[in-house]
Computed example of a mutant assay.
Amino acid sequence: MAKETTKTTIEADGLRYRSKAPGSPFAATSSFGAATMSCFLCGKHRPRAMLKSKKLLGKSQPVCAPSCKELEAQLAAKK
């Protein structure tokens, strides 16, 4: 099934999207610990408490705490 295409044009005020919600889905929170970061391995955004630092390619990168697969299984079991 083909995905429906949406035609967009740049309006006079410079905005392009009418149906897109403004802002980011990863809005900044007031506390540093509640912010999300993306896992370097799987790319999913997680709260910082679910991530750990691991040295990859000579630099510390945030990755999912036990592992990406284990964390995904834990989160699926909670639902």
Score class of each variant (00 low, 15 high):
Cys39Trp: 02
Leu56Asp: 01
Ser19Lys: 14
Phe32His: 10
Ser19Ile: 06
Ser30Gln: 11
Ala12Asp: 14
Leu57Tyr: 12
Lys59Ser: 05
Ser24Ala: 05
Leu41Ala: 05
Ala35Trp: 01
Ser24Gly: 02
Ala27Phe: 05
Pro66Phe: 06
Ala34Asn: 15
Thr29Met: 09
Arg48Ala: 11
Lys59Cys: 03
Phe40Ser: 04
Lys44Phe: 08
Ala49Arg: 14
Ala21Met: 08
Asp13Trp: 02
Pro22Arg: 14
Arg46Asp: 00
Ala65Gln: 07
His45Trp: 14
Cys39His: 03
Gln61Leu: 03
Tyr17Arg: 12
Phe40Glu: 07
Cys42Met: 03
Leu51Thr: 01
Leu57Cys: 06
Ser38His: 06
Pro47Gly: 06
Arg16Pro: 01
Leu51Met: 12
Lys54Tyr: 08
Arg48Ile: 14
Lys20Arg: 15
Ala34Trp: 08
Ser60Gly: 04
Leu56Cys: 02
Lys54Ala: 13
Ser30Thr: 13
Ser67Ala: 09
Gly33His: 08
Pro62Thr: 06
Ser67Tyr: 04
Phe40Ala: 12
Ala27Pro: 00
Pro66Glu: 08
Ala49Leu: 06
Ser30Asp: 15
Gly43Met: 04
Arg16Lys: 13
Gln61Ala: 06
Thr29Leu: 13
Thr29Cys: 03
Gln61Arg: 15
Phe32Leu: 11
Ala49Ile: 08
Leu57Trp: 08
Lys20Ser: 11
Ala27Glu: 14
Ser31Asp: 15
Ser38Cys: 05
Leu41Asn: 07
Arg48Met: 13
Thr29Val: 09
Leu41Lys: 10
Cys39Met: 07
Ala34Gly: 15
Ser19Phe: 10
Pro47Lys: 13
Thr29Arg: 13
Ser24Phe: 04
Ser24Lys: 06
His45Arg: 11
Ser60Phe: 11
Ser30Tyr: 07
Ser60Trp: 12
Ser19Asn: 15
Arg48Thr: 12
Ser67Asp: 13
Cys42Lys: 01
Ser38Leu: 00
Ser53Phe: 12
Asp13Lys: 06
Gly58Ile: 08
Gly58Trp: 07
Pro22Thr: 13
Pro25His: 05
Arg18Tyr: 03
Gly23Ser: 11
Gly43Arg: 10
Ser19Gly: 09
Phe32Thr: 09
Pro66His: 08
Leu41His: 03
Gln61Ser: 03
Phe32Pro: 01
Ala49Cys: 08
Cys39Asp: 09
Gly14Ser: 08
Gly23Tyr: 05
Pro25Val: 07
Met37Thr: 09
Ser19His: 13
Gly14Cys: 07
Lys55Ser: 09
Ser53Lys: 13
Leu51Phe: 02
Asp13Arg: 03
Arg46Met: 07
Ala35Cys: 11
Ser53His: 10
Leu41Ile: 14
Lys20Met: 12
Gly58Lys: 04
Ala34Glu: 15
Lys20His: 09
Ala12Leu: 10
Leu57Asn: 15
His45Ala: 15
Thr36Asp: 05
Ala34Tyr: 04
Ser31Phe: 10
Leu51Lys: 01
Ala21Lys: 15
Val63Ile: 15
Val63Trp: 01
Lys59Tyr: 04
Ala35Asp: 10
Ser67Cys: 09
Ser24Gln: 05
